[in-house]
Write a protein that binds this DNA or RNA. Structure first.
Lengths: 199, 199
DNA sequence: CGTTTTCTTGAGATGTGTCAATCCTCGTGG
DNA sequence: CCACGAGGATTGACACATCTCAAGAAAACG
């Protein structure tokens, strides 16, 4: 959708679909740095040049605002600014969680964490299956998962297979994952298990 | 200064000194997720519980505001909110740069990047030495550097030695680094070298 | 000084990356 | 309907970067 370095004279919240933010080094190594879901913003006030690549994962609908009018909207309607601040701080927290994952987790923990993150997000939409099982659709290819997690796609594939072999997950086709016991999966993420949700 | 899980009923910009934000896993692995410099905020509106550990690197002076009054200030003074939004978005960009470093850079590139980041920050304060050289004071121990970079302190030590042996940097004591040629250091970071500053 | 912290260096283990071959799964066109 | 091809996924063998464990050296500090 957008290449790093492009001129951006608009901001645009995602309305439908999923897009990714990523950075690429000269030799091709790429790291995903953000996942844009509906209501997330592409672009930001006070910046002319896009610093990251934006890729559509699925078909995406966005809602473009020219930047200049949007910036004056910010000034005239404080409520909008407050909402944006909330969102930015939430994204910052997500980024920090992600930094722990990238810097300190093992490949297996990374995969388990990713599945848990997606599962948690889906959980908010549709209820879990009756018996504590959960089924999630991975919206990403193995390569995209690798770029998200700071791994190679081969390692992703191996660890997914390993988790399957150990009974932590089951596969239905390539992209669908069945989680027999969420607690077992959470054990594998390396995160605190007791931690209640932070307010 | 603060442990993750603590109740926080205030927000506090740093006035003097340097502090770090970090997360720790049950088995002790820790990852630094933020560096708080003067003007950066500890705590955020709309959150009761501290999600991260805050550690003072040097003596730190902060300026505490009770959260409730501060939140009403946000509502009544839009300008403050806009400034906070700017800062949050800048931090988000920094976090994303950091994610690329954690996920995709080699140990040597990580070290070079860290030194370059600190050098750039210092550069804004005091001018460079005449002949293109630069001298920077590392405010961090090897262990803190390791937690910042997602490495072990042994690897940090080895890579610092390697950069010294290769003439990229020189050491004056343990904590002071002399950079004979900034461009050579930037080569080692793996970043785009041609990139002008993004606006 | 002695003690403690911080840093350096080595040897070996190990997790992840690299390179390469093969296998699915689908969609396309003969 | 089937062969074919392309993109994605899996698996294996091996290389290598980083971690782990351990011993010392150097600096900081009372």
């Amino acid at each position: 959708m957008i290449w790093a370095g492009d001129k951006m004279d608009f901001v645009a919240p995602v309305v439908v679909g999923v897009a990714t933010l990523s950075q690429t080094m000269e030799d091709g190594r790429t790291q995903m740095v953000g996942l844009l879901l509906p209501s997330d913003f592409i672009g930001r006030p006070g910046r002319e040049i896009a610093p990251y690549n934006v890729n559509a994962v699925s078909d995406v609908t966005v809602c473009c605002f020219r930047k200049r009018p949007f910036e004056s909207l910010l000034v005239s309607t404080p409520h909008v600014g407050q909402r944006l601040l909330e969102m930015a701080l939430d994204e910052l927290d997500a980024a920090r969680e992600w930094m722990l994952l990238l810097g300190r987790k093992t490949a297996r923990e990374k995969i388990a964490s990713l599945i848990a993150i997606i599962a948690r997000r889906d959980q908010e939409l549709k209820a879990a299956l009756p018996d504590g099982q959960m089924s999630v659709e991975l919206p990403l290819t193995r390569e995209a998962m690798a770029d998200y997690l700071g791994l190679t796609l081969e390692t992703v594939s191996r660890q997914v297979s390993a988790l399957k072999k150990d009974g932590v997950i089951q596969l239905e086709g390539k992209r669908k994952v069945l989680i027999p016991d969420m607690d077992v999966l959470l054990e594998e993420t390396g995160d605190d298990t007791d931690g209640g949700p932070l307010i």
